[in-house]
């Protein structure tokens, strides 16, 4: 089983990203959980969302305290939230940032595992003409965690986009490019 924790701010779509990841894993034949943790709901407040991905149905319904991977949608959270809390050193943290893993490592409270960054803003703006961090973040998490096979993932997502954007086929290609380029552009730290 792979456990993933998402950190974002209310309104940025961390919950949606965790749902998209569940969709991708579901399409690949896995058992999935995607669930948000709600505090006082307000735009911009830190929020957490979770994924469990497994070969068999998981009966555990607690939050995730020792995740295999952490995804940070907003790098300003690094200062205020203990994003690496409980994160396994055998796993990795994936941060949406234009900075390199080496630049961000000192802000991670001594986390000894792998640090990865992805410039979701740039990739999104390049391919979609607007800032939608979820698509590149999703691809980066799939690339780093290997929770779904790359080719299977891209094939399933294409099918899903063609269905979802049946009335707007022009956005399908941009989203698919976003996914492919994000998978290739993840920067892996030591």
């Amino acid at each position: 089983m792979i456990e993933i924790r998402w950190h974002g701010r209310g309104g940025q779509g961390a919950k949606t990203a965790s749902q998209l990841l569940a969709d991708a894993a579901f399409m690949a034949g896995k058992y999935v959980q995607s669930f948000p943790e709600y505090g006082p709901e307000r735009s911009g407040a830190p929020i957490t969302a979770y994924n469990r991905i497994s070969e068999e149905r998981c009966s555990v319904h607690s939050n995730i305290y020792d995740p295999d991977y952490v995804a940070v949608v907003d790098e300003t959270l690094l200062e205020s939230v203990d994003v690496t809390g409980g994160l396994k050193t055998s796993g990795a943290i994936i941060i949406n940032s234009a900075k390199s893993p080496d630049e961000l490592k000192p802000h991670l409270r001594g986390y000894a595992g792998r640090v990865c960054t992805i410039d979701a803003r740039e990739i999104s703006q390049r391919n979609l003409g607007a800032y939608f961090p979820n698509t590149p973040m999703l691809a980066a998490v799939v690339a780093v965690s290997g929770c779904v096979d790359r080719e299977q993932f891209l094939k399933d997502m294409e099918e899903s986009y063609r269905h979802k954007f049946a009335k707007k086929p022009q956005v399908v290609e941009g989203n698919l490019k976003c996914l492919r380029e994000a998978m290739d552009e993840v920067r892996y730290g030591a």
Partner: peptide
Amino acid sequence: EDGFITSHAIEN
């Protein structure tokens, strides 16, 4: 159903 834990969690 359990609020949020079941109502808002996506599962198979």
